[in-house]
Each structure stands twice: as structure tokens, then as C-alpha cells.
């Protein structure tokens, strides 16, 4: 399978850019980012709050199979322009990491395809590089398990 997600992380810069083209109309791609029940399924996290509007806020929480909270993050929505743009902050709770700023841009390529560009800005280069190492052992397996779970749910439908 070809890998569609590209990450641009230049050495010495406190930012990174994630791009991905989807075989989806831009409206559906956008919807997947603002409807809590949909975000829950593809992000593999519980959405406690998601107010997709300027001055709105959001909070996600992930629990392990034993029901213990393993991850909680929150932020504020600065801009939310349907099918175009979301500007928001992201911060992990109970972690030493400073908040990051995220610009999500949604673009229609054709009637049935679209592109997402996610620009993340960190407080420092060191912080960006440290955060890049996080999903390794635990996070990656966890994301993979969730993926299989969601896919099997889709098949059952």
C-alpha cells in the first residue's frame, strides 16, 4: 500500500507540516474533524468536549482497557471555517510539554478528493524533537489496535 501521509520536519525548525490527500470530498474530510462521534472513531480517543467555533474549546481523553486514563489533552479553537480551516491549540494534560499551535487547512482537489495540511508550531526545536519520539513504543501499538477495532466494526455493519 502506498503511504499517503507526508511529514516535513526540517532540522533546526520548531515546526512540522503533515500533509495527506484523501479520497473524500472536502466536506466529509472537514466533517470528520468537527463531529465528536466521528473524531472519536478515527482518533481512537473519547471526546469530552469539542466546540468547533471561535473561542470554543476541546478536550480528549483516552483510557486503557482497564478503564484508566492514559492520555488527556485539551485546547482552544481560534478559527473554524467550514471546509477550509481550523486553527487551534493543543496541550497534553499532566505533562511537562508546552502548548502547541496547529493550523489545519482543508482543500478540495476535485469533487471527490481533498487535501489536509496540518502545520504544527512548537515552543522550541528541542520540544518538537522530543514530541516526535513520544508515539513510539506505546502510542504506536495503541493506534494500531484501535485501527483494527474500528475496521472490524466497519465490516460488521
Amino acid at each position: 500500500m502506498t503511504q499517503k501521509t507526508k511529514i516535513q520536519a526540517e532540522a533546526g525548525k520548531q515546526e512540522l507540516v503533515i500533509t495527506r490527500e484523501f479520497d473524500l470530498p472536502v466536506a466529509l474530510l472537514f466533517k470528520a474533524h468537527v463531529v465528536p462521534e466521528l473524531v472519536e472513531q478515527w482518533m481512537g480517543t473519547k471526546v469530552l468536549k469539542l466546540e468547533s467555533k471561535p473561542h470554543g474549546s476541546w478536550q480528549f481523553e483516552t483510557t486503557n482497557p482497564q478503564g484508566e486514563v492514559v492520555f488527556r489533552a485539551n485546547g482552544v479553537i481560534h478559527e473554524c471555517m467550514p471546509d477550509q480551516k481550523i486553527t487551534r491549540t493543543f496541550q497534553m494534560e499532566d505533562s511537562p510539554f508546552d502548548v502547541q499551535l496547529e493550523f489545519l487547512e482543508f482543500e478540495a482537489l476535485t469533487d471527490t478528493t481533498s487535501r489536509l495540511t496540518m502545520h504544527q508550531v512548537f515552543r522550541s526545536v528541542a520540544l518538537r524533537d522530543q514530541l516526535l519520539q513520544l508515539p513510539f513504543a506505546k502510542g504506536l501499538n495503541w493506534a494500531h489496535d484501535r485501527l483494527q477495532e474500528v475496521v472490524s466494526q466497519l465490516i460488521e455493519h
Partner: peptide, 26 residues
Amino acid sequence: FIEPFRQLWEERFNTLEALMKDYSSK
């Protein structure tokens, strides 16, 4: 070094795509 992070997003986005295709047909 970036690869595990890239894969994490690749998997999330693959799920998103499958989910929304299903959503659209429903």
C-alpha cells in the same frame, strides 16, 4: 526517526478515510 510518528498519522488518516466513505454511503 520521523517514521513512527508518520505511521501514527498514516493509520489515523486511513481510518478517517474508511470511516467517512462508510458514512457517506450510509
